[in-house]
Design a protein around this nucleic acid. Structure first.
Lengths: 169, 169
DNA sequence: GATAAATATATTGTGCACAAAATAAATCAA
DNA sequence: TTGATTTATTTTGTGCACAATATATTTATC
């Protein structure tokens, strides 16, 4: 009683306006709430992170670097599921803000190593308040939060896998 | 055994580097997978929607209009949880593509009515294939999909509510 | 050891996404 | 009615996000 069927009789939608209607209803979409949630979250984080001098994608990049530094641009892109072309300018801004340094790897001159500065490392203490601030006044049980996180993490793993497959073909 | 506690003893993180470590781990974040999922989904939709001459946000806008047209810019922004400033240029591009018209409401000259053109209405039939194409080869049971959708819809409702509260203050 | 293929970043061009400010029309108040 | 406030949309400026392309370095292949 599960699994996505995709027989040809379902793909032929031309003569089934009622099914088209159903499939295209905004409240039937799985992807739309994910899109909306992402935007709304960004909007909530914005003023809080602005006090640290960070944007949300910059904050995520710092999370990765706080776990281990230095890292190559490619490693960061993989961890964040982002395009390399997105990160280069973002990292330049983090460099301009004084949080990281960008240096060519002497071992392999193609690579660029992103390393935390003292200022970047110091920022971690203040940043630890961010998740607490965001959770404040949120009527979300720890169980619900864990469930949501795991559910979406599984989805991301699947989407990332699929994205990689497409890349290789 | 649930609910987010936010006592002052938890907010004082200065002398608890271990807790800071835990809170800032990327794989402990709820918001990051939502952000990653949103980007990955956009990436999967892109080539499919490109054949229809739409981007993902434009596709979502058309979904709303296929349910009812005309709509004001504000109604669209509310339905999509988007800023008005985001929609104006997007709608101009949809107009340039020939899918909608933009006309000042004669009843209230402040409002701009967005209405489907014949071409925009016709596009709906082809668009009905999009969800089917995207689901193809996805090992996701209908039950899991429903569960995910409802979970994230609830989150969006909460985030939207919170976002509005902030607006009024 | 020259040449080709693969790898790692950077650049370019298009399209969001948002806050803040600007514009303009409608409504309210004195 | 006039002047102030509110409401609806647009404009401006910053920062992603991505595909496609370009550039440079490394590794394979011969």
């Amino acid at each position: 009683m599960s699994g996505v069927r995709s027989g040809p009789e379902e793909l032929d939608i031309e003569n089934r306006p009622d099914q088209a209607e159903e499939l295209l209803r905004l409240d039937r979409q799985v992807c739309f709430p994910l899109y909306a949630a992402s935007n709304l979250i960004n909007r909530l984080y914005r003023p809080v992170l602005a006090e640290l001098g960070l944007t949300y994608p910059q904050y995520l990049t710092m999370l990765v670097l706080w776990e281990r530094s230095p890292r190559t641009v490619g490693e960061l892109a993989a961890a964040l599921h982002l395009d390399g072309g997105t990160l280069t300018p973002l990292l330049k801004r983090l460099e301009a803000s004084g949080f990281v340094t960008r240096t060519r790897d002497v071992e392999d001159e193609r690579r660029v190593l992103i390393e935390l500065t003292a200022q970047g490392r110091t920022l971690k203490t203040r940043a630890a308040q961010v998740p607490l601030t965001l959770m404040e006044g949120f009527e979300y049980s720890e169980e619900d939060a864990d469930n949501l996180r795991e559910t979406v993490q599984d989805l991301v793993a699947m989407l990332a896998d699929r994205s990689q497959r497409r890349e290789r073909s």
